[in-house]
Simulated scan of single mutants.
Amino acid sequence: MTGVLAVFGGRSEIGLAIARRLAPEASVVVLASRPDPDAAGPPSDLPGAVVVDFDADDVGNHRAVVAAIEERHGPIDTAVLAFGILGDQTRAERDEAEVARVLHTDFVAQASLLTVLADVMRGRGRGSIVAFSSVAGVRVRRANYVYGSAKAGLDGFASGLADALHGSGIDLVIARPGFVVGRMTRGMAPAVFSSTPDQVADAVVARLRGGGPVVVWIPWQLRVMFAVAPFVPRAIWRRMPR
């Protein structure tokens, strides 16, 4: 990889783990995230990175943010969409505003930025984009159906976009991790085949460097597990944990 690496959600654990691995190959690393008064500059292990203000929920500003990055640093060669929220499932079951918040960040904002990046990269016939889906969207479970439905929508959108980009020179990677042990899931009991941000980053970077299928299951064993998910009777599935 050469050129500009842009991580949208540039303070996320997974986004930073990917940035650390790709930084030696990038001309510039751009970390785009909401301003953080407690961490105004880049992390100490990414001293040359550039921090850019980015509010994922402000979809009307997505194209302007991408344009500003490219005007200052050059064409984005690799874009990683690492932002997202888990939300509060219990609250969402009685509060429509919480439902809208989760769906907006985890689906609408993702689809908006994916569209902008694909459009910009399509014009020059090259580039790589990483979108983060989740096994939670493969078959939505009662225990986290709001987050799961957002990921299901994103997974479908990204899958269709990947097909639309076929032959364009743009590589769209859909990362589909299981439970990731990190800040977002702190206090929750890890699920079967859990992974860490570093393990997710290793899998994504290996796919970017070596090529392969559009969808990357993390870890790969989840592909086998979820191959049978559509056939599990609903009476059993509704009792599945998060």
Rank of each mutant, 00 (worst) to 15 (best):
E71K: 15
V216G: 05
D53K: 05
D53Y: 02
V232R: 06
A235E: 09
P230I: 07
P197K: 02
A19C: 08
R234G: 14
R142Y: 14
F107T: 07
V181L: 07
R139M: 08
V204N: 03
A143T: 08
D45V: 00
A17W: 04
I174C: 02
S134G: 05
M240H: 14
V65F: 06
L46W: 02
G127K: 02
V108E: 07
A92H: 01
F179T: 11
A191L: 15
A64G: 12
P230E: 08
A79W: 01
D58A: 15
A229V: 11
A56K: 02
R34K: 10
V130H: 06
W217C: 05
E93V: 12
P37I: 04
L16G: 07
A111I: 09
P24Y: 11
G127A: 09
A111D: 06
P219H: 10
F8N: 07
G178N: 06
A175D: 09
A109F: 02
H166N: 00
E70C: 06
L16D: 03
F179S: 10
L172S: 01
P219R: 05
Y147D: 08
E70R: 02
R139K: 14
S112E: 14
A158R: 00
R11A: 10
A56P: 07
A6Y: 01
M1P: 08
I18E: 04
F231W: 15
L16P: 04
E96C: 09
D198S: 13
A17P: 05
A100L: 15
P233D: 07
P213H: 03
A136E: 03
M121L: 12
V146C: 10
H62A: 14
E13Q: 15
R122E: 15
A131D: 04
A39F: 09
G84R: 05
D202S: 04
I85Q: 08
G212L: 07
Q89C: 10
A26L: 12
R207H: 11
D198E: 15
A79R: 00
